[in-house]
Design a protein around this nucleic acid. Structure first.
Length: 276
DNA sequence: GCCCAGGGAATCG
DNA sequence: CGATTCCATGGG
């Protein structure tokens, strides 16, 4: 990673066609907002504030070399070589187009509980509403800090009732949030076990929660447990598999097929609109 | 009014 | 098993 320090900001040199906007707004994370080209969001207790210049440089504001090399690089998974992965994906015609279209995306390493709760809310829902529900959830139950409201811990939500969550306007998902909070805070669903379990066992553990099926569990593992072999199949990916991969998704991608999935998802979902 | 949104559970046959 | 229906809410 090539970077330099200017006052309290880190300037990161362009690399691998990295796109800050695509990465933060491709449907994997829901707590980042853009204003005048500057993206802000809370990751745990720390705020990440960043913008990307025309020349590809990324400015990370109010940080240090230590924080950039540790916390920020870890969150963006900057030490994983995406160029190598993208070359591999290009053996496939459709994936080649996807990589050309949105190869600047990186899979973030998000906090496990926040990811679980967020993707429970995501089911049969649209991204704009998902963000609104999560904003209200954080403001009502998250610890208030000078950086903003933290994502509420499961212990705080475990003893709530659906009526107490009705202001979220989460619909039928409110009881799923409560069930997840109870099972995670009690240890009935064990995050430590998930971290070392096989993909199959990890999915089985997460699907003990009401409202968590194969797709949500796969998203949680991919985005919230850094499991690059987790492969969420939503309506868009399902269509793409039927249309382009009647023989199945290429087995060569297995170990990192979750990343390939993210490129494919964004490509098929956005190509028509931007072609015009 | 109708349809759909990064699904899942319950209920059929 | 697979297919269908219902679930809340809001935007297009």
């Amino acid at each position: 990673m090539n970077y330099r320090l200017e006052e309290n900001n880190i300037i990161m040199a362009p690399f691998e066609n990295f796109s800050l906007a695509l990465t933060l707004d491709c449907g994997q994370a829901f707590r980042f907002a853009e204003k005048d080209g500057v993206w802000e969001g809370l990751v745990g207790k720390k705020k990440i504030k960043a913008m990307q210049r025309e020349n590809g440089e990324v400015v990370f504001y109010d940080t240090s070399e230590e924080e950039f090399c540790g916390f920020i690089s870890d969150y963006f998974d900057f030490n994983t070589d995406y160029n190598q992965l993208k070359e591999l994906y290009k053996i496939d015609k459709t994936m080649e187009k996807a990589v050309d279209f949105c190869g600047g995306i990186r899979i973030l390493k998000q906090e496990s509980w926040e990811t679980l709760c967020s993707f429970i809310i995501s089911q049969n829902n649209n991204i704009k509403r998902i963000k609104g529900i999560i904003d209200r959830l954080c403001e009502a139950f998250g610890e208030e800090t000078k950086e903003g409201y933290l994502f509420p811990r499961p212990e705080v939500l475990a003893d709530k009732t659906p009526e107490e969550l009705s202001f979220l306007r989460a619909g039928f998902r409110d009881k799923y949030i409560i069930d997840a909070a109870r099972k995670v805070s009690s240890g009935e669903v064990d995050f430590e076990k998930i971290k070392t379990a096989s993909l199959e066992d990890a999915i089985e553990e997460l699907t003990k929660i009401r409202g968590v099926g194969l797709k949500v569990a796969s998203c949680v593992l991919l985005y919230g447990f850094n499991r690059k072999d987790a492969f969420p199949v939503d309506v868009w990916i399902k269509r793409a598999l039927e249309e382009f991969y009647p023989e199945g998704f290429p087995s060569e991608f297995y170990e990192t097929r979750g990343i390939a999935q993210q490129f494919l998802f964004h490509y098929i979902r956005n190509k028509e609109e931007t072609d015009i």
